[in-house]
Simulated assay, not measured.
Amino acid sequence: MKEVMAIIRINKINETKRALAKAGFPSLTATGRVFGRGKGLVDFRLIKGAEEGFPEAIAQLGSDPKMVPKRLLTLVVQDEKVDLAVKTLIKSNQTGNSGDGKIFVLPIMDSYRVRTAERGDTTLD
């Protein structure tokens, strides 16, 4: 079993959920808003606001790295389904622009279904 953790753009959540369900991954956990940043030094929404002349955006621009809101998705999948999950996440989130996100794959030792006390891969379906 593997945990597939994806940090994606907020506006891609619905498209991603649909794509994952269509690919056979209806179960996932989404964490509300998370904040982070990559190599970039500024939130691109601030640049757009500054270009449009909004004083609040202009005041926030500077050399300090800005934190950008994202969504964090996690799903646990069988080992043989990891590639499909990752490809689905990439296809539904890739814009070709900086900030498209990151995907991490981590090992999971075991899983249990609380309701029935089942254990292992059967708990993933």
Rank of each mutant, 00 (worst) to 15 (best):
M1S: 12
M1R: 07
K2L: 04
K2E: 12
V4A: 06
N11R: 09
E15S: 13
A19S: 15
A19M: 12
A23P: 10
A23K: 11
G24K: 07
P26F: 07
P26A: 09
L28K: 02
T29V: 13
T29E: 04
A30G: 00
V34G: 04
F35R: 04
F35D: 06
R37P: 01
G40W: 03
D43E: 12
F44R: 11
R45G: 02
K48P: 05
K48M: 07
G49R: 13
E51K: 14
E51R: 14
E51L: 15
E52C: 02
E52T: 04
E52I: 00
F54W: 10
E56G: 02
Q60P: 00
Q60H: 10
Q60T: 01
G62A: 02
S63Y: 03
D64E: 15
K66Q: 15
K66P: 03
K70I: 09
R71L: 10
L75C: 08
L75Q: 08
L75T: 15
V76G: 05
V76W: 00
D79K: 05
D83L: 07
D83Y: 00
D83A: 14
D83T: 14
A85P: 10
T88V: 01
T88E: 07
I90C: 06
I90K: 14
I90M: 14
S92F: 08
Q94E: 12
Q94P: 00
S98F: 02
S98W: 01
D100E: 07
D100F: 04
G101W: 03
K102C: 09
K102Q: 10
I103T: 08
I103Q: 05
F104H: 03
F104Q: 03
F104T: 08
L106V: 11
L106T: 11
S111A: 15
Y112P: 03
R115Y: 06
A117I: 01
A117K: 15
G120L: 04
G120P: 12
T123W: 01
L124E: 05
D125L: 12
D125S: 14
D125P: 03
